[in-house]
Design a protein around this nucleic acid. Structure first.
Lengths: 145, 145
DNA sequence: ATGTGATGTAACTATTGACATTACATTCAA
DNA sequence: TTGAATGTAATGTCAATAGTTACATCACAT
C-alpha cells in the first residue's frame, strides 16, 4: 500500500497558502478547487495540521494561515501530522508469528531494528526538506511557466 | 497506510529456509505454521519471489530453496519482488490537481523530485541489508534464547 | 440582532487492497 | 498410480481511503 495522498494534499495546501494568502482568503472551498478534492477532506486535513500546531484556521470568518516560520516546518512534521501510517510504523508486521517455532519466536528480534533503520532513513530525508524549500521552488515553477 | 505484511512475511520465509532446510522439507504448509498465515497467502508470496528469481519452488514433490547466494539478495530485492507499493511509488499523489490553478498546475514539478529523494533514501537503506545479515542474526537469536 | 459565509463533524456510501478460506486442477516422485 | 504438494480461481470479510450530504456552530459585517 502507498502512503495516503493526505500527505501530498497537505503539502499542496501549504503551497497554496504561500502563494495566495495576500491575494485571496484561503478557505477549504478554495483549496478544494486547487487540489480537486472534496472540501470535507480538506477540512479534515486542516484540522490535523491545526492539532499539530502547523496552521491556524479562522472559525466563522474563515481562512487558513501558517502558524510557524516556514523554515521551522519540515515535511516530516507534515507527514506525522496527517498520520499516514498506523502506530507510526511504516512496515506492517504479520500479527501472530508462531511462538512455538524458533524463527517465529525470534522474528521480531531479528527484524525490528532493521525495519526501524529503514524507516529512520526515510524520516531523516523528510526532515531535511522544509516549507521554505517548497515555497522557493513553488515561486520558481510559477515564475517560469 | 502501511507497507503490506507481505514484505515481513517474505523475510520470515527466508529466515525459515536458512534455518530449517537441512532438517525439514520447507513447504507452504510448514511456512504457514511458522508465520501463522494462510498457506495460500504464502504460496502467492512464493510465486512472486520465484518470478523475481529469488527462490526455487519444487512442484509436485514440494519444497522451497533459495535461488541465489544469500549475500546477493537484499531486502530491496525482496521488497520489490512482493510489490508492496503500486507503480513502485511510495507516495500516493492526489489524482487531478487543478490545471487552471498556478499551484495545481505545478505541484508535480514542485514535489515529485522531493518525494523521489525520500523514496530513494529508504530504498538505499533496504539495499544495504542482505539475507546474509538476516541469516547471521537469526542464528544469533536462536542460539541465545 | 441578525444574516452571511465559513468551519467542524457526524453519518452514510463506494471503492480498493489485504488477508482468509474453500476448492480443485496440476505436478512429480516414490 | 497414488499421495503430497503447488498453482490459482472464486468468494468473503475487514479496514482505510475518499466522496458526499447535512447541519450545528461560529464570528464578523451590516
Amino acid at each position: 500500500m502507498q502512503i495516503s495522498s493526505r500527505f501530498t494534499l497537505a503539502v499542496h495546501i501549504f503551497a497554496c497558502i504561500d502563494t495566495f494568502q495576500d491575494a485571496y482568503k484561503v478557505t477549504s472551498e478554495f483549496l478544494a478547487g486547487s487540489t480537486n478534492v472534496n472540501p470535507v477532506i480538506i477540512r479534515k486535513i486542516l484540522s490535523q495540521l491545526k492539532a499539530a500546531g502547523l496552521v491556524a484556521v479562522a472559525r466563522g470568518t474563515g481562512g487558513v494561515s501558517v502558524a510557524k516560520p516556514l523554515e521551522e516546518i519540515t515535511l516530516l512534521d507534515i507527514y506525522r501530522a496527517v498520520a499516514c501510517v498506523e502506530h507510526g510504523t511504516l512496515f506492517h508486521f504479520h500479527e501472530n508469528p508462531n511462538e512455538q517455532c524458533p524463527v517465529g519466536r525470534n522474528i521480531h528480534r531479528i527484524l525490528d531494528d532493521k525495519l526501524l533503520q529503514v524507516q529512520n532513513a526515510m524520516e531523516k530525508e523528510l526532515a531535511s526538506i522544509t516549507l521554505e524549500d517548497i515555497k522557493r521552488d513553488t515561486e520558481n515553477c510559477i515564475g517560469e511557466p
